[in-house]
Simulated scan of single mutants.
Amino acid sequence: MSKENIADVGANRTGIKTSPIDSKDIIAQAQKAEPSSPGDARAIAEVRKQYTREAADGLGSVPPPASLKGMAKTAVDMLKGGKPTVLIDKLGERLAFERSGVRLYEGALSKLDVFGSWEGGPSRELLTKILEDELGHFALLMEAMEKLGADPTAMTPSADLTSVISMGVPAAISDARTNLRQAMQALLVAELTDNASWELLIDLARGLGHDSLADRFQLALDAEAEHLALVKGWLAAGVATEARAPMDAAAVPAQP
Rank of each mutant, 00 (worst) to 15 (best):
M167V: 15
L230Q: 10
V62F: 02
A144V: 08
N5G: 06
N5V: 10
D215Y: 10
P253K: 05
L148S: 00
K80N: 14
K3T: 14
E4D: 14
R99G: 10
P38Y: 07
E119N: 11
F138D: 03
S36Q: 13
I130L: 07
D22R: 10
R216A: 06
G136V: 07
R244Q: 15
P157Q: 00
K80I: 05
A30D: 12
T162C: 13
L91Q: 04
H137S: 02
L141P: 02
D211Q: 13
A205V: 04
D151S: 09
F97Y: 09
E134V: 01
P256F: 08
S19M: 11
P256G: 13
L79W: 03
D194S: 13
R42V: 14
L230K: 04
D133V: 08
V76S: 07
T241Q: 12
D194P: 07
P246T: 05
F138T: 01
A72I: 14
V86G: 01
G58R: 01
E93W: 03
L192E: 15
L204A: 04
G107W: 05
E98T: 07
G233S: 09
A159G: 09
Q218Y: 03
D222P: 02
G60C: 01
P63T: 07
A7N: 11
V231D: 02
V9W: 13
R216D: 11
A223W: 01
I26Y: 13
F217R: 01
D160L: 13
L201D: 02
D89P: 04
Y105N: 01
L188V: 08
N195L: 14
R42S: 15
E143F: 04
V114Q: 14
S212K: 15
S61N: 10
A11H: 12
A7S: 08
D203F: 06
G58C: 05
M184Y: 06
R42C: 11
M247S: 15
M247G: 13
S158D: 08
E226Y: 05
S110C: 14
F115W: 06
Q218G: 06
S23A: 15
D151Y: 05
V102N: 07
G121C: 05
K69R: 15
L221C: 08
Q218F: 08
G121E: 04
K17D: 15
A30H: 09
T52H: 08
W234H: 04
L109C: 08
L131V: 02
V114A: 14
P152A: 07
G209N: 06
K69V: 14
P65M: 03
L180H: 05
D89S: 05
K3I: 13
S110P: 05
D215T: 12
D175Y: 04
G60T: 02
I130H: 00
L104I: 10
L180N: 03
